[in-house]
Amino acid sequence: MTETKPIQAPVEHKGRRGFLPIETNTFDRVFISVVIWIGASLLWMRFIEPLGLSVWICTILCIILGVWIVKKG
């Protein structure tokens, strides 16, 4: 007897569909925001901070983006 079931988050997503291409619940959206924030901060430190713009600008932008994602995503 062979049986396969792919590894999956066992919880049914009771999420909703926003502008993001997948159904997400609040936790997913916070997670996505944090991932984007970390990635953007690192890129900012690499490429933009040497030009003189502080990384805090990036943080503020990311918080705005994060709020938007959590509310509308």
Binding site: M1, T2, E3, T4, K5, P6, I7
Partner: peptide, 8 residues
């Protein structure tokens, strides 16, 4: 190795 996802 597949955490029980694949059974034989």
């Amino acid at each position: 190795l597949t955490f029980g996802a694949v059974k034989e």
